[in-house]
Computed example of a mutant assay.
Amino acid sequence: MRENLIVGDRFEGVLLETIRAKGSSRPRVRPLEYFDQEIRVEFPRHLREENPLGTRFRADVKVSQKTKNGQPWGNPYLVATDSSIKKLDFKPKKSLKAINLHTVSDRAYEYIEKEFKTEPTSINFLDFREKAYQNANVSPERLESTYNSTKRSDIIKTYALSRANGKCESCDDDAPFLKRNGEPYLEVHHLVELGSGGSDSPKNVAAICPNCHARVTHGQDATEFNDRLKNKIVEFEDQLTE
């Protein structure tokens, strides 16, 4: 444990872990060495949300403290340097994921057990496809609890990304880059928007690259482009059913 922290001090390669902190609905990060585990760590939000709780990282950290009227205010905390963050090959005992409930509040989260592991060697795609269909919401007008609808949507989104397997389901090109967690970056598009009566189901979602997503949203041929993509997804899903 480090005591009498001095603002501005830097420490290299500190072991950190994502957690569900007491008294906070948001996923947090704690140090596992050198520091009191109760000390707050400022850490990129997208990494806290994209990875299950218990994921471990190493990062350089700096001791910081807020000020009020020119005087120190609150307790010192650690700030992780974004460019130094490295995800470790460590498997949490339980895969619990934090889902942000944007429709409720930017600070509101639910925690769900991930439906499957993302490593290709551990995915039984057909089993997960069956689970996706079981969780499909083909009647979006039906009222559901926020928790259930969030869980269902997350399963359908994850299924689309799994089905794409790193390639845009529109242009068939590889994802343009890898996210910091090593997963290909694709965006999940509802072929018929939920607000227009579209279903949250495998046949109504496509995992596509940012360029195709922009085209299907803003392009002059957006409607025709979307229709071709819709036919492609439906045909592919029907082939898997046969």
Rank of each mutant, 00 (worst) to 15 (best):
C171A: 05
K157G: 02
N100S: 10
V41R: 03
A136S: 04
P92W: 06
L47I: 05
A175E: 02
T81E: 15
L53T: 09
L126W: 14
S145L: 03
K66Q: 13
Y111T: 05
D106G: 14
T158C: 07
A132S: 01
H46T: 12
A108Q: 08
S64H: 15
P52Q: 09
S149H: 08
H102I: 14
E110L: 14
A175R: 01
N51P: 02
S83E: 14
D172K: 12
I123W: 03
E49D: 08
I99W: 07
H46V: 12
N100M: 08
R163S: 06
R129D: 03
K62R: 15
I155C: 07
P52R: 06
G74Y: 05
S145N: 07
Q134L: 13
L53C: 04
E141D: 14
R180G: 14
K179F: 04
D106K: 13
R48E: 06
N124W: 04
Q134N: 15
R56Y: 02
I85F: 04
N137V: 13
E119C: 08
P176I: 07
K131E: 10
P72W: 11
G182N: 02
R56Q: 13
N51Y: 02
D154S: 14
T55I: 02
S84L: 05
R58S: 04
T55W: 00
Q65V: 00
S84W: 07
K86G: 04
F177P: 01
T150M: 06
T158S: 13
Q71T: 11
C171Q: 06
T118H: 14
D173I: 04
S83Q: 12
E119V: 09
F90E: 15
K157F: 08
A80V: 03
E141T: 12
L161G: 00
P92C: 09
D82K: 13
P72S: 06
E183W: 07
P184C: 00
G166T: 01
W73S: 14
S95F: 11
Y77R: 06
V79N: 12
T121C: 11
I99C: 08
D154E: 15
L47M: 10
P140S: 03
T103I: 13
K66I: 05
K157R: 14
A108K: 09
S170T: 03
N135C: 07
L178M: 10
D89F: 06
K97C: 11
L88H: 05
D174G: 09
N51D: 05
A59V: 06
P140M: 03
K91G: 08
W73Q: 10
F43V: 04
Y77W: 10
S105E: 04
A164W: 00
V63H: 08
R58I: 13
N69D: 15
